[in-house]
Simulated scan of single mutants.
Amino acid sequence: MANTSSAKKAARVIARRTAVNQARRSRMRTYLRKVEEAIASGDKSAAADALKAAEPEIMRAAQKGILHRNTASRKVSRLAHRVAVIGA
């Protein structure tokens, strides 16, 4: 347990930031799941719409430090490719 006042404050700050980051990560994963479900259903228009909504969320997560920017770009790229090949 923290002993100094600065360490106690740091622990409080970490707890707040962790909660915020968990919420952001959960939100991003929800959007990813919607894209995955649309791809699995084979509905290209629904998948494209879901991807269009998910991309800003993924990139926002990267900007906020939840994901590395290259990881976010890779996820978007792979999802876009999977949406593109539906029904092809």
Rank of each mutant, 00 (worst) to 15 (best):
3 N>R: 13
3 N>K: 04
4 T>W: 00
4 T>Y: 13
5 S>N: 01
5 S>I: 05
6 S>L: 01
6 S>K: 00
9 K>T: 10
9 K>C: 04
9 K>P: 07
9 K>M: 08
9 K>Q: 12
10 A>G: 05
10 A>D: 12
11 A>K: 14
11 A>T: 06
12 R>F: 09
12 R>H: 05
12 R>P: 03
13 V>A: 10
14 I>K: 15
14 I>Y: 06
14 I>H: 15
15 A>K: 15
15 A>N: 07
16 R>V: 09
17 R>S: 10
17 R>A: 14
17 R>N: 13
17 R>H: 01
20 V>P: 01
20 V>N: 14
20 V>T: 07
21 N>A: 15
21 N>M: 11
21 N>T: 14
22 Q>Y: 01
22 Q>A: 05
22 Q>I: 07
22 Q>K: 15
23 A>D: 06
24 R>W: 03
24 R>N: 08
24 R>I: 10
25 R>V: 02
26 S>P: 02
26 S>H: 11
26 S>K: 15
27 R>N: 10
28 M>F: 08
29 R>A: 03
29 R>G: 00
29 R>I: 03
30 T>L: 09
30 T>R: 05
30 T>M: 08
31 Y>A: 15
31 Y>R: 12
31 Y>E: 05
32 L>R: 11
32 L>N: 01
32 L>Q: 01
33 R>K: 15
33 R>N: 03
33 R>A: 05
33 R>G: 05
34 K>H: 04
34 K>N: 06
34 K>V: 08
34 K>I: 00
35 V>G: 09
35 V>P: 06
35 V>T: 14
35 V>M: 01
36 E>L: 08
36 E>I: 14
36 E>C: 04
36 E>H: 13
37 E>R: 11
37 E>A: 14
37 E>G: 15
38 A>L: 06
38 A>C: 13
38 A>M: 08
38 A>R: 12
39 I>A: 03
39 I>T: 03
39 I>C: 02
39 I>Q: 12
40 A>Q: 11
40 A>E: 14
40 A>W: 02
40 A>G: 11
41 S>T: 06
41 S>R: 09
41 S>M: 07
41 S>Q: 05
43 D>H: 13
44 K>D: 01
44 K>F: 10
44 K>L: 02
45 S>K: 13
46 A>D: 12
46 A>R: 14
46 A>S: 07
47 A>D: 07
48 A>N: 04
48 A>Q: 12
49 D>P: 03
49 D>L: 08
50 A>N: 09
51 L>K: 10
51 L>Q: 05
51 L>N: 11
52 K>Q: 13
53 A>Y: 03
53 A>P: 07
54 A>Y: 07
55 E>H: 10
55 E>A: 05
55 E>Q: 11
55 E>Y: 03
56 P>V: 12
57 E>T: 04
57 E>W: 09
57 E>I: 02
58 I>R: 03
58 I>N: 08
58 I>M: 12
58 I>K: 04
59 M>P: 02
59 M>L: 10
59 M>N: 06
60 R>D: 05
60 R>P: 00
60 R>T: 13
60 R>N: 15
60 R>V: 13
60 R>S: 11
60 R>Y: 06
61 A>M: 09
61 A>S: 10
61 A>R: 01
62 A>F: 00
62 A>S: 12
63 Q>I: 09
63 Q>H: 13
